[in-house]
Design a binder for these strands. Sequence first.
DNA 1: GTCTATACGGGGATAGAC
DNA 2: GTCTATCCCCGTATAGAC
Lengths: 194, 194
Amino acid sequence: MNLNKNSKRRKELVAIAARLFCDQGYESTTVRMLADAMGIKSGSLFHHFNDKQEILFSVIEAGMQHAMQIATQAICELEQPRERLMALARAHLSTLLEDRDAHVVAIYEWRSLTEASRQELVKLRDAYESIWSQVIAECHGAGLIQGNQGLQRRLALGALNWTVQWYRPGVGLEPDDLAAELVAMVLREDACGK
Amino acid sequence: MNLNKNSKRRKELVAIAARLFCDQGYESTTVRMLADAMGIKSGSLFHHFNDKQEILFSVIEAGMQHAMQIATQAICELEQPRERLMALARAHLSTLLEDRDAHVVAIYEWRSLTEASRQELVKLRDAYESIWSQVIAECHGAGLIQGNQGLQRRLALGALNWTVQWYRPGVGLEPDDLAAELVAMVLREDACGK
DNA sequence: GTCTATACGGGGATAGAC
DNA sequence: GTCTATCCCCGTATAGAC
């Protein structure tokens, strides 16, 4: 077994798996399909991963780590709460679009993870959401909004995550317009968009 | 094959299937598990349904038809746009909770439907969403809100549908509070909740 | 690191008796 | 309408050569 989790080859394989899992679903994607798409035979797959579930885990883990990185970067140089919230919404949408495969898989295939894998990923997700909690708290502190912060965070992230169901970029609505409308909603400002 | 789609027996079977599909996922639920839960042998299942996919279709269809009925009923005697929107949000949440199994399945297992089944269900979904479009248009007409109506509908329905991921009734937050916060967000009113 | 070959189980679905 | 028996296929994973 190859245990080098950061090899370039491994990352390629994970990206290919993400694509197939996203398109056809985890359970409907066979190890033979995965191997085909990777240009190897199915037996060789198990040199890189212990089992199929580990591939799923790796796909989701990669997506979450990248999301975390983008979000942190997006807000680190901003100071105004409203700007930071907007940057966070934009960052969230842009990872949702760039790493769409991985995030769709994270949303749909959670159930197929082992309990141990789930627990590890929950930690990553919680860390990501705590960034949102932080920025929403800043908005409250600045008097931009009142009420139930946890609920507002969940409704906002829900509305954003649900975009994978319907949003396709380049068909009239730009990602930034979408983020702007969401922030306006959360902060109860007048509608901005078209 | 029993073709009576409205028999009481059939509805029971569909409800049982909804439960299993929701808990374990469609692909991971075998016809033998379904039969077990229904108290029959797997061969007998195919007297009621032509194939496994038809069971999935029936589960989702039932959930959507019920949602439509509840929504229509909820708003038919109301006249003020804001009241109608609130009633719609409450109705949506209550079907999401009452028929949770079916709606979770509708969200997660869409991919496993045949193209023909998908097309039929898309019609039902479109009909349901057009109720929302209508009421949101009324809110715009009354000057309660401006901007991109389709986007507002999608963000609102997204935030609501995403609640299946985190919301459990009876843990602090009542469904009506949730609906109220959502409506306040959509109409850009001051935060109402706790 | 990839191959071939294969084990082993369990999947959906059918046939025909009762 | 349910049963038993069974078909046939394809799923994941392993072993050992190269």
